[in-house]
């Protein structure tokens, strides 16, 4: 439990560092130091925030709610091992709605600043997250149905043992990877280092936050990315209970950081999509999850 909390606090910083170092490596530059996210957060925490004159309670409340929901969602996901601090039947539904709560406060905070860019960003965020939610539910639901379990800690242990389950497993992996790209604002959905406010989705919503508020939001996004990577790692981890908890946890963390390298590599190889094409890309995730659902249903029906 303590180890899980420690991982939830430390791994996000390292994961952000790994993604950035991978990108630097591809570009041929020395790049940002590995722990830069930590230095940034420490610096931001020591600055005095500035608030817009039209801002009300939402701008000030948003960072705490966003961090709180990110941490709670992190407690539901098996980052290190086979047990999670929080676990109950159908907790993946609670997970999705926790994220939803965080998202709505982020959007309200963005709208509260009265800036037209942040309003645009909020509307884009609402659209794309609404589009990707079915993919998440289809994937998690299919894994639940296929494995017969209903809690994250257990349904992510689903492993393929015949062609049909292999299709289920692959479809869910694809869906979860696209979910990571959408929720963590990575290329091809969004460019986290862009300076073009008219193209931003996530970054534009935080343009008016400063000091500790910004530190909290940056940290929360890193936690969200870790959580998504944790989902993938748990689904991919090849070891089983016999390997012992320490080795299992190490493998899991290794896979999470490996996911970081994959994210960084994907970001370095392709360009970002036109905003109008993002729903098509998300549809890819929905289709993959739907195919997984079909495969699972057919298998249980005795076919395949």
């Amino acid at each position: 439990m303590i180890a899980h909390a420690a991982a939830l606090l430390v791994v996000p910083i390292i994961l952000v560092g790994v993604v950035n170092r991978t990108k630097s490596c591809w570009a041929g530059r020395k790049g940002v130091p590995l722990l830069q996210a930590f230095y940034d957060i420490v610096r931001l925490a020591r600055k005095r925030p500035v608030y817009s004159s039209v801002a009300t309670v939402f701008v000030k409340a948003a960072p705490s709610v966003v961090l709180g929901t990110a941490v709670v969602s992190g407690l539901l996901v098996p980052l290190l091992g086979r047990r999670t601090p929080l676990s109950f039947p159908f907790d993946f539904v609670f997970f999705a709605y926790t994220w939803g709560l965080g998202r709505i406060f982020l959007m309200l905070g963005a709208l509260d600043t009265g800036s037209s860019f942040e309003g645009m960003g909020a509307s884009r965020e609402a659209t794309y997250s609404a589009l990707v939610e079915p993919a998440f539910f289809l994937a998690a639901g299919t894994l639940a149905a296929a494995s017969g379990k209903s809690s994250f800690a257990q349904l992510l242990r689903f492993r393929p043992d015949d062609p049909a389950t292999a299709v289920v497993w692959c479809g869910c992996l694809v869906a979860l990877f696209v979910l990571l790209q959408v929720e963590s604002a990575r290329i091809p959905v969004d460019d986290p280092s862009t300076h073009l406010e008219l193209t931003m989705i996530h970054e534009v919503m935080v343009l008016d936050h400063s000091g500790p508020d910004l530190a909290v939001i940056q940290y929360a996004s890193a936690i969200k990315m870790t959580v998504c990577a944790g989902l993938l790692a748990a689904l991919l981890n090849p070891l089983d209970a016999a390997a012992g908890p320490a080795l299992f946890a190490a493998a899991n963390l290794g896979l999470i950081l490996g996911a970081g390298i994959v994210i960084g590599t994907v970001e370095s190889l392709i360009a970002r999509l036109k905003l109008r094409s993002i729903p098509e890309y998300i549809f890819l995730a929905i289709s993959a999850a739907f195919v997984a659902l079909l495969a699972s249903t057919l298998r249980r029906g005795g076919l395949g």
Partner: peptide, 9 residues
């Protein structure tokens, strides 16, 4: 601007 990092670098 389109996020194609190799060419940009």
């Amino acid at each position: 601007d389109v996020g194609f990092l190799p060419a940009a670098a």
